Simulated assay, not measured.
Amino acid sequence: MTSSSDVIEEAPMANGTPYPSATLGGEQKGSIEQITLLLFIVVPFLALVAAVPLAWGWGVSWLDLGLLVFFYFLGCHGITIGFHRYFTHGSFKAKRPLRIALAIMGSLAVEGPLVRWVADHRRHHKFSDAQGDPHSPWRFGETVPALMKGLWWAHIGWMFDEEQTPQDKYAPDLVKDPAIRAISRQFVYWTVVSLLLPPLIGGLVTMSWWGAFTALFWGSLVRVALLHHVTWSINSICHAVGKRPFKSRDRSGNVWWLAVLSCGESWHNLHHADPTSARHGVMRGQIDSSARFIRVFELLGWAYDVRWPSRSRIDSRRTTGDDGSRSRKAGAEAA
């Protein structure tokens, strides 16, 4: 989370004049922002922990479950299709309405301002699992204690680092877009919308405050916590374990059991082998719902110039052998 007073230094325009208040989320995290971030990690996590005994003791209504699932996958696809494959890597081009919709959908995931998210991820790819990577689990070494510390850092710890990625350096294209810059600056607003929509719907459907409360618990708090930890697992787990059938210069791996919940992002080895590919799950049986939606957008004419991976492109990135043993060795040497 960020404070509206935290903005990056004004990025210069082509004619030398600065962009006004480029984006919410600057290059230094203040104490207020760090405290707010802590609350947005701890409170939903406590709700996630409490969800198990509550569901066992009192159950969960179909309405609450439906709100959780709907808003989870709305935000998840906003991150995977919008923030990640579109805004960060340019896996396809989008017409203006889809571009705006993806920016808002991703913001509803409550994972930080759009421009900051993109800048961090582009920096991650530039230095993946090497010095300069903002969230590599191999940051502290390869011993078991060092890896345990690194997994914590990659999963959550890095977000409390005061030093932030320069957004005018890593995401100048987004800083220059007035609409995208505005949505990024409005992150607090979209967070409020994301948290209040489920209880509003739950209260109206049940016509009760209790219905609003349970919808807030399941559709907002539990949903946000689950989505956060699944997304963060791509940074931590998918850079520590998993099969590596494709050549990459880091330790990114495919973790199959995260595929559905991550909307296809956990086929992470192919992504790092071919970052601009619109599809990450390219092998038989690899579920990638984000790629399916991109295909639908393409058929509807909303998306175009989609970078689908060709067979020759996929084969050129394969390692020798399907077990990924050679790529694990290559990843270790690269790190």
Rank of each mutant, 00 (worst) to 15 (best):
L67P: 10
L68K: 06
Y72C: 15
L74G: 07
C76T: 13
C76S: 14
G78R: 12
G78E: 11
I79W: 06
T80Q: 05
F83P: 04
H84C: 09
H84S: 15
R85C: 00
T88N: 08
S91K: 12
F92N: 10
K95W: 01
K95G: 00
R96G: 14
R96E: 13
R99H: 03
A103P: 04
I104V: 12
I104T: 14
M105H: 06
M105D: 07
S107G: 14
V110N: 04
G112D: 03
P113D: 05
L114S: 00
L114N: 02
A119M: 05
D120G: 01
D120A: 06
R122I: 02
F127Y: 08
D129G: 07
G132M: 03
G132C: 13
D133G: 09
P134F: 07
W138A: 03
R139E: 03
F140C: 03
T143V: 00
M148V: 14
M148T: 11
M148P: 03
M148W: 15
L151E: 00
W152E: 13
W153N: 01
W153C: 08
H155I: 01
H155F: 11
G157W: 00
G157K: 05
W158D: 07
W158F: 08
W158T: 04
W158C: 03
M159N: 08
M159A: 15
M159F: 01
D161F: 09
P166V: 10
D168H: 10
D168R: 08
P172R: 11
L174D: 09
D177L: 06
I180N: 07
R185F: 11
R185Y: 14
R185I: 06
Y189I: 15
W190N: 04
V192T: 12
S194Y: 08
L195M: 07
L196E: 13
L197C: 12
L197V: 15
L200N: 15
I201N: 09
G203Y: 00
L204D: 01
T206I: 05
T206F: 01
